[in-house]
Amino acid sequence: MKKTSVIILSGVVILFLVSWLVKGASLSGEENPYLQGFLTTFAAFLTLAVFSFLYRDNPFYKFAEHLFVGASAAYWMTLGFWQTLVKKLIPKLSDGLANFFEVPTEEHSYWYFLPVILGLLLLMRLSKKGGWLSRWPLAFIVGYTAGINFVGYLRSDFVKQVSSTFVPLLIDWQGVGHFFSNFSLAIDGQFVMMLANVVIFVGVLCGLVYFFFSKEHTGLFGTASRVGIWILMITFGASFGYTVMGRISLLVGRLTFLFKDWLGLIS
């Protein structure tokens, strides 16, 4: 270990201990103040450890990352066991086991042995010889998902979207004179609504043309395709903007935690 590493590490440890003690003392009215103090300090430490990656990769970040990966893997595994196996499967098969796990018993249904068998076959993946057996449950999963999604997507993303594209070009139309005399840029005004409908219609059409692979994009087709890519780019821009907003929100959430729950700077 280098000398600077030792200095940094001991500095962090001292800060951690100080924060723990101070936090614990400030929570003295509550139950287990020092445990609470430790948890808050540890959470703050992990937040800062992850933030430190912005400066550069370092052991603190790595520690936080590995802790997260390990804890979440364990969490999902336990959850899978209790929520799926214990809660959904065991009451359907055995009263004795249900009582052992303290879950309410249910009417037995031996159909549930089928998923048990499929689940065990899925585990055959771990064996070199019987690995091919895991393809059967996989085929079941793929087939089931494809079937359900096929109809669902066709209804929601095709048929219903077709009818959503049928938008009237003229809204509340009472002649050109009326249009200009009542012209407004309000979000629910006639002009904006009509413009929105035109954008929807042209956007859908040109976007589809861009993703049409059976014809070379030349001439009028090429123009429509270029409009299509412009519209896609505008959509990506909007998407980008939304993402920035989302990420800033997450940062605000973390900073609020640091300032409020840890440092107590704001109430």
Partner: peptide
């Protein structure tokens, strides 16, 4: 970004 976000929180 850190400063811009922190100030309005504080």
């Amino acid at each position: 970004i850190f400063v811009a976000v922190s100030i309005p929180i504080l």
